[in-house]
Design a protein around this nucleic acid. Structure first.
Lengths: 316, 316
DNA sequence: CACACTTACGATATTCGTAAGGATT
DNA sequence: AATCCTTACGAATATCGTAAGTGTG
C-alpha cells in the first residue's frame, strides 16, 4: 500500500469541500488530476471512499472511518516536519565541547547565556580539561569540538585559530621582581619556576621558548587552582598565559608582564575534518568564533590570523 | 519539504547497516538509486544525515536526531496502514440496520454471535421497527440497510428477496376452529379479525388478499406483543406470517395453517442503490443473506428466487 | 445548456538500473 | 586488486494539464 501525503491532503480537502472542482483548486491541481488522485487512493486503500455522481459527493461509511486515520497521519506528518525543521535550525539536540578551564572561564560567560536563551531545546555539555585531554575527548568522539591550545598534526582534525595570548610572570608579592612594571625573560634564569605537567598546553608552550634550566622539575601541577595556591603560599613562581590571570588576582600574588618574551599561546577551535558538525554545534562554534574575534580586535587592535572560517550560523 | 516513506525506510536501513550496498539490497534498490535516495533526503531535510567516505558510513549528530523522528513517522505510518487494512476487511466501524422484530428474532440470533466474535471492533446497531419505519430509517440515512417486508418503488433503493413466508391463523384455544389441522380462508368470513396498523407489513400484505369485510376496523395494534395479549385473552383472532409465530406459542392460543391461502410475506434486504455499503455492513448483509438462503432451502426444499446478490463478504 | 465528474492523451518529471569514475585500503 | 560511494545516462514509470466525453437537472 503506497499512500502519500498528497493523497491524504487531497482526500481531506475533498471531504471538506464535497466537490471535486473546488477541492482540486484548494490543493493546486487540475480537476482531472485531482480526480485521478482520489481514484488512485481508493485503489490503494482497497475500498470506495466517496459515493459521487454528477450532482453530489459524499463520503462512504468506510471513507469516514478512513478520515480519522488520514487526519492523524497528516497531523503527525506535519508536526514531524516542524520537528525536522527545528533540527535543521539547530533548535534540537545536544552540543558537547571540551575546553581549557581558562578559555571556558574567559569566553563561555559571554556566549552561553545568549545561546541557551535562543536555543532552549539544546542541551550543552562542556567538559573542562587540560589540553591533552580536551583533544583526546575530541578524538574519541565524546565531544563535537574542542577549544584548546594543543597544536596537533592529526590529519583527521582541523583547527581554526581563535586567539593568541602572551605569557605573564606570576610570583608571590615578596619576590624581588614583584614590584617591576615589566621584566625580561633573562631575569628569571636564576630562580627556577614551578612547573605545569606535560599534559597542559602551558607546559607545552613554555618548553619551546624557555631554557630547560629555568624549569624546576621536582614539582609539577596540572590544575590552575593548585598552582595559584602554591604561589600564594610562597612556594615559587610561574609563567602563565593571559586568559588564566583571573585565577591569580590575589593580594599575595604579583602579576608582571614581560617586555621581551615573545611566546604566545594560541587557542584553537579544533574539530574532526570529516565529521559534519550538528547544527547546534555549528551555531555554538560560530558564536565562540565571533566572540574570539571580537576579543582579538579589542586586545590587539586587529583581526586574528584566521584560517578558513566555519559556516555561518544556521539558526534564525 | 517532501519526504516519503521510501526515504525514511531507506534512511533507517542505512542507519542500521551503515553500508550503502547492503542497505540498498535490504530495500530492494540498486545501490546508485539508493545513494540518490539518501542524497535526495538530505536535500529535503536541509542537513547532512551521514558522513561517508569510501570506507565508512556514520550518522551525523543531526542524523541521529532525525532518526528519532523518522522512526516515529515510519511506525505511525505502518500502524496506520494496518488500521486501513482493518477498515478494508470490515474490522472497524459501525453497522446500523433496521429490521422487523420478527426477522430480528428469527435471524439475528443465528448470525450476530458469529459476527461479533469475528469482528469485535465493529459496533452493531439494530433498530427493530414496523416496516414503514424500517424503510424510513433507511431513506433518512440512519441505517445502512433494512431487513423488512416493505415493497417500495423508491428508485433510490434496491432490494433483494431474502425469504418468503406463509400466513397462519391465530385464535384463542376456545375458538371453534382452534382444533383444526388446516382451515380455508373462506371459513373466516364470519368472524372478523383483529387488525394490525397500516404501517405494518402484515396489514399491508393482508389487505391485498383478504376481503375487507373480514377486517375489523375498530381495533388496530402495531406491536406483536399487544396482539398476542389480546388473542390470549379471548378478544379475537388474527392472521400473521410464519416468522412471528414465536410470539404466539402460548397455552391459551392456537395456531392453524391455511390450506388455500396463497398470501405470502416477502422479506427483503433493502439498501440505497448509490451508496456504497461499508465493509462491515456488507459483511453483515452477506451473512444475513447466506442465513436466509439456508432457511429457505430448509423450509421449502429449494432456492429462493434471488435477485442479483450483494458482493461476497470481504472479511478474512 | 450549465455543471460536475471521468476518460483520453501527450508533455514533463521522477525513478531506477547499468555502466563508468574516483577514492581508500 | 578489492571495496565502496558517486556520477552519468538512458529507459521505464508516474504525474499533470488540456481537451473531449458522459450524465444530470
Amino acid at each position: 500500500m503506497n499512500i502519500s501525503q498528497k493523497h491524504l491532503k487531497a482526500f481531506l480537502s475533498l471531504l471538506a469541500h464535497r466537490n471535486f472542482t473546488r477541492a482540486s483548486a484548494s490543493v493546486c491541481l487540475s480537476q482531472p488530476a485531482f480526480s485521478a488522485l482520489i481514484t488512485g487512493l481508493e485503489k490503494e486503500v482497497g475500498f470506495r471512499l466517496f459515493d459521487r455522481d454528477s450532482h453530489q459527493v459524499r463520503p462512504t461509511e468506510d471513507g469516514k472511518a478512513f478520515a480519522e486515520v488520514a487526519e492523524h497521519l497528516v497531523s503527525f506528518h506535519d508536526s514531524s516536519m516542524k520537528e525536522i525543521e527545528a533540527i535543521r535550525r539547530g533548535e534540537r539536540g545536544r552540543v558537547s565541547m571540551s575546553a581549557l578551564p581558562s578559555t571556558a572561564v574567559a569566553w563561555l560567560p559571554a556566549v552561553l547565556p545568549d545561546f541557551r536563551r535562543l536555543y532552549p531545546g539544546v542541551r550543552v555539555e562542556m567538559i573542562d580539561a587540560v589540553s591533552d585531554r580536551c583533544l583526546q575527548l575530541l578524538i574519541d568522539g565524546v565531544v563535537d569540538f574542542a577549544v584548546t591550545a594543543c597544536e596537533t598534526d592529526n590529519p583527521d582534525l582541523v583547527s581554526e585559530l581563535l586567539y593568541t595570548e602572551s605569557f605573564y610572570f606570576i610570583c608571590p608579592v615578596g619576590h624581588p621582581l614583584a614590584q617591576r612594571e615589566t621584566i625580561r625573560i633573562e631575569e628569571l634564569y636564576d630562580s627556577p619556576l614551578l612547573n605545569f605537567r606535560h599534559s597542559t598546553s602551558i607546559r607545552q608552550r613554555v618548553e619551546k621558548v624557555i631554557p630547560p634550566q629555568i624549569l624546576q622539575d621536582s614539582l609539577e601541577v596540572e590544575q590552575l587552582t593548585t598552582m595559584m595556591g602554591l604561589v600564594a603560599n610562597g612556594l615559587g613562581s610561574c609563567v602563565v598565559p593571559e586568559l588564566t590571570l583571573y585565577q591569580f588576582r590575589d593580594p599575595g600574588i604579583a602579576i608582571v608582564p614581560f617586555s621581551n618574551f615573545d611566546a604566545y599561546r594560541n587557542i584553537h577551535l579544533v574539530r574532526h575534518a570529516e565529521r559534519t558538525l550538528s547544527a547546534p554545534a555549528a551555531n555554538l562554534c560560530a558564536r565562540l568564533i565571533a566572540h574570539a574575534e571580537h576579543k582579538c580586535v579589542a586586545a590587539r587592535g586587529g583581526k586574528p590570523q584566521a584560517s578558513a572560517p566555519l559556516d555561518d550560523e544556521v539558526g534564525a
